[in-house]
Amino acid sequence: EVTIKANLIFANGSTQTAEFKGTFEKATSEAYAYADTLKKDNGEYTVDVADKGYTLNAKFAG
């Protein structure tokens, strides 16, 4: 089991951190699915991958 950390950075400057656990593939998929649920209210996002894929920095356009 691994933990994927998602740093969510919103256009207004606020941030949120979420963690997803499971296999690498499952946890990564859940992190992206969570970011997708936030698109409606926060706009499209881009992701910078860090820490060999164990940290995802998602920046929302607003």
Rank of each mutant, 00 (worst) to 15 (best):
N12V: 04
V47K: 03
I4S: 00
D51F: 03
Q16T: 11
A33K: 11
S29Q: 14
Y34W: 15
K5H: 09
F60D: 00
K21R: 14
L38Y: 15
G53T: 02
Y45I: 04
E19Q: 10
Y54Q: 06
Y54S: 04
Q16P: 00
L8G: 03
A18G: 04
V2R: 04
I9Y: 13
A18K: 15
T3P: 03
N12A: 05
Y32S: 02
L38V: 04
A58P: 00
I9V: 11
D41N: 11
G22A: 04
Y34E: 00
A35K: 00
D41P: 05
T23K: 07
T3E: 04
D51P: 00
F20T: 01
N57I: 14
E19W: 15
D36F: 04
A58H: 06
K26P: 00
L8W: 12
G13E: 04
D41I: 12
K59G: 04
I9M: 11
A58G: 03
Y34G: 00
I4N: 00
L56G: 02
Y32Q: 03
D48K: 10
L8I: 13
T46V: 12
K39Y: 06
K39W: 04
A11G: 08
A18E: 09
E25S: 10
A61H: 13
T37D: 09
A18R: 15
A35V: 15
K52V: 06
N7I: 15
N57D: 05
E30T: 06
K40Q: 11
K26F: 11
K26L: 10
E1R: 10
I4K: 00
A33S: 09
V49T: 09
L8Q: 01
G22S: 04
G22Y: 04
A35H: 01
E44H: 10
K52G: 15
V49L: 10
Y54H: 10
A35I: 15
A61I: 12
A61G: 12
G13F: 05
T17W: 10
V47Q: 02
Y34N: 01
L56Y: 02
A27R: 01
T55M: 06
Q16M: 14
T37M: 14
G43L: 03
K26Y: 10
L38W: 13
L8F: 15
A35P: 01
A35Y: 15
K26G: 11
E19D: 07
Y32A: 02
K5C: 11
T17Y: 14
T55V: 10
G43K: 02
N42Y: 15
N12H: 06
T55C: 06
L56I: 15
E30P: 01
A61V: 13
T15A: 09
T23C: 07
N42W: 15
D36G: 04
A18H: 14
V47M: 15
I9H: 10
K21A: 07
K39D: 00
L8C: 10
K59E: 07
A11K: 09
N12G: 07
E25Y: 09
Y54N: 05
F10S: 02
Y45D: 01
F10A: 01
E19V: 14
D36Y: 04
K40V: 11
Y34R: 05
L38M: 12
T37S: 15
A61F: 14
N57V: 12
T37G: 12
S14D: 13
V2L: 06
V49G: 04
E19P: 02
N57F: 11
K40N: 10
T3I: 13
K59R: 14
N12D: 15
G22W: 04
K40W: 11
F60E: 01
V2E: 05
K39L: 06
G13C: 10
E25H: 09
E19N: 08
N7C: 14
K26E: 12
L56S: 01
G22C: 05
T17Q: 11
G62P: 06
E1A: 10
V49R: 06
D36N: 10
Y32N: 02
Y54E: 04
T28Q: 09
A35G: 02
Q16Y: 14
G13P: 00
N42D: 04
I4T: 01
D41A: 13
E30R: 09
E25C: 13
F20I: 00
K40S: 10
S14T: 14
E30Q: 12
K39N: 03
E30N: 10
V2C: 11
G53Q: 04
F60N: 03
Y54F: 14
E30A: 14
Y45E: 01
F20V: 01
A11W: 09
G62Y: 08
I4P: 00
Y45A: 03
D51N: 07
Y54M: 10
K52F: 14
N57T: 14
F10Q: 02
V49F: 12
T28K: 07
K59P: 03
S14Y: 13
I4Q: 00
L8D: 00
T28A: 06
F10N: 01
T17P: 04
E1K: 09
G62E: 06
A33H: 08
I4F: 03
E30F: 07
A35M: 15
N12F: 05
S29K: 14
D36R: 04
Y45L: 04
A61K: 13
G13H: 06
Y45P: 03
E44Q: 09
K59C: 11
D41L: 13
K21H: 14
G43H: 02
A58T: 09
N57S: 08
K21L: 07
G22Q: 01
T55A: 04
E1V: 14
A18P: 01
